[in-house]
Design a protein around this nucleic acid. Structure first.
Lengths: 208, 208
DNA sequence: GTTTGTGAAACGATTCACAGCT
DNA sequence: AGCTGTGAATCGTTTCACAAAC
């Protein structure tokens, strides 16, 4: 199976958003040139990206807006629901839990865990906070697909180890630390300090 | 001035973290091979990345840990403080405000703004929440370098416009929307839904 | 002998350009 | 005529390999 670059995946999600906007506007069909204008990319890039998965358009006509959106949702795995466990019931965890952009895309946080005994037992919108020591059991018994780590760097290695042992398939890591996962587990890092550092670098070079 | 790719910048921040870890362990010097092992990259990649900015090593010896860390901090713009305004005093805003990883790197949130009149006037750790309508004035009068947008997609265009007009140099956008900024302003997007979508894509292709 | 700094080679991603379908 | 799908060409990034420095 061909390897798809991260930038290509990012663009696919971009195309989907543009298509959903078009759907809302009642558009029936769209050409790669139209879509490219909206997304700020080159038309050939769109056609190339799509050609990695099949041919979804009609020559001379373009793409069916709803048809292509549907195919993209399938390709990205967004036509099913994913079960998430959130580890870390601090401020960031609470922000992620409350954010409804996730649920709208089929990402459902079905379990919340925290290392602070004072937080364990509290309820967030019907979800009881459990102890981190329960992670392995929770992932297994509640059929968790993705673990979201909103915790400091230190416990991350242990947490990932537990989750992987229990059969988790994806990890979204917010801690500023490098994690190793087995080949069959998908990992993504969101490093907020890194983003600011990269921004800082950009600021240093402006008008220099 | 040569253009530096985003992936190179990300690696520079990675090198800095590894060097700071080494500093903590009392190491004096490090070779590109050592550093590469820690960072999970190729030694030649490190040397190539560094060569974009000068030559900091000694042949036969390696690099001075503290010396290289210091140079990287200068290159990344981390040896000075940056003044941030946070727009959006919701859950995400509150998580960002409380996160001390920013302050440790010299990113100081000196102003907080929100569109909800009920929140305006409240104080967060000595910082009074102001109305978003004040953004332009705040950026100008308080010499804001970077605006952090922890708000929904809708107000983003207007907010960026105000901030840019007032001379902001960088924007960190958490809203799931494409923003256009003038060439002299640096923009970075952190799109949490996109990260999950990309993770979902990864999960679809595992063991397929 | 060791390790850097750097051209050259290999690789990967983007853009071009056009044959082929509607 | 209009637009897709794709091989070829271009561009940028990563890796190799070695001469120069210590």
């Amino acid at each position: 199976m061909r390897k798809i670059s991260d930038s290509a995946v990012r663009r696919l999600t971009l195309y989907l958003r543009c298509l959903e906007e078009l759907e809302g506007q009642g558009a029936e069909t769209v050409s790669s040139a139209d879509l490219a204008r909206r997304g700020g990319v080159m038309p050939a890039q769109i056609r190339k990206d799509l050609s990695l998965f099949g041919s979804f358009g009609t020559r001379g006509r373009g793409y069916s807006v709803s048809g292509l959106a549907c195919r993209l949702r399938e390709i990205l795995g967004l036509s099913r629901a994913w079960r998430l466990a959130l580890v870390g019931a601090g401020r960031l965890g609470s922000a992620l839990f409350a954010y409804d952009g996730f649920r709208r895309r089929g990402f459902e946080i079905v379990a919340v865990l925290d290392g602070d005994p004072a937080k364990v037992g509290r309820t967030w919108n019907g979800v009881v906070i459990q102890a981190v020591t329960e992670l392995e059991r929770v992932v297994r018994e509640r059929a968790i697909d993705i673990v979201v780590l909103a915790v400091p760097a230190e416990p991350v290695e242990w947490l990932v180890d537990q989750a992987v042992r229990a059969g988790v398939r994806g990890v979204l890591n917010f801690a500023p630390t490098r994690v190793d996962v087995p080949e069959h587990v998908t990992l993504r890092d969101v490093d907020l300090v890194l983003e600011l550092e990269a921004l800082s670098f950009g600021l240093m070079r402006e008008r220099a």
